[in-house]
Design a protein around this nucleic acid. Structure first.
Lengths: 156, 156
DNA sequence: TATTGTTATACTCTATAACTATA
DNA sequence: TATAGTTATAGAGTATAACAATA
């Protein structure tokens, strides 16, 4: 927070490591560190709820879109279907989701959120939002919007 | 392939997945996707040189700072020392780095870059820079600088 | 034949613990 | 005792292949 990194002459510390001047300009390095830093704030915030960011994402999609086929969640979240099996397993075991056969297509499983799931999602989301806010603490409100906008643009 | 699931009104495609409206606002999602997108461009660019971004980072630091102890590289690059052993192993086997005992402290290994290492580093760096440029293609030059600045600020 | 979900399996990345040789 | 490097090992995360049930 204190150090405004002067890149060349100063050996500025980034997080727990000493910043390598040869790397601090590289976008991959910045993105990796930023994402790692985000996880380091988010993980402990979600830990009391027994879920991580990916599980929260699944809960959010199911609550926003209603009962969903696993295949649909796979498309939404960009994870492998075998990974989705494990995610839904965990959420089902925790009583946050239910799985049932889709009457229209008996190959498919319809995933629905439970009352507990809705509550946990709401509370975990609030905790994650709070963590996100803390993570962005060093930026002004316009800078925060700008960062989101630029990341969004780069993803497209 | 056929189904464009038209979530609500805007069915915007992000990369290979359909963007979940409930998630597109979340910073963790944006950072993860941005980093993944970056890797998807960088990896094939570096592939001809037989290295990845992390190996290139090590080469860059050794070339920029001269013969370095592994411990120093660990501090610079923020990876575990056991991971650094594997990285230096690979670079040494490829003939890009050499390892020798430090006469001052015979516990330590001094890592130096070879002629081949310098050449590969230069060529791979150019390829990575080109990939980075393509990745940022959708942003104006000021926006690119802004993105770097904001990521840098958030890391501190 | 193709698709949904599943299991088994493997591969990468990373971290922990224990060891060695030095200090 | 502590440190640099190493090895063995285990845990996540993710992907591939093969299978059952269904379309």
């Amino acid at each position: 927070m204190r150090r405004v990194p002067r890149s060349h002459s100063t050996a500025d510390a980034v997080g727990r490591a000493t910043a390598p001047s040869a790397l601090s300009a590289r976008l991959g390095y910045l993105l990796k560190r930023a994402y790692a830093g985000y996880l380091a704030v988010q993980a402990p915030a979600l830990q009391p709820f027994g879920i991580d960011g990916r599980l929260l994402a699944v809960l959010s999609v199911v609550e926003a879109e209603g009962p969903s086929l696993q295949q649909r969640l796979v498309e939404r979240l960009n994870v492998d279907r075998t990974t989705m099996v494990a995610i839904v397993d965990r959420l089902e075991q925790g009583g946050l989701l239910t799985r049932e056969r889709d009457p229209q297509d008996r190959r498919a499983h319809l995933v629905s959120i439970t009352r507990d799931g809705e509550r946990i999602r709401r509370e975990a989301q609030a905790a994650a939002d709070e963590a996100e806010k803390r993570f962005l603490d060093g930026l002004s409100a316009p800078e925060q919007r700008q960062l989101r906008r630029l990341l969004q643009a780069v993803i497209d």
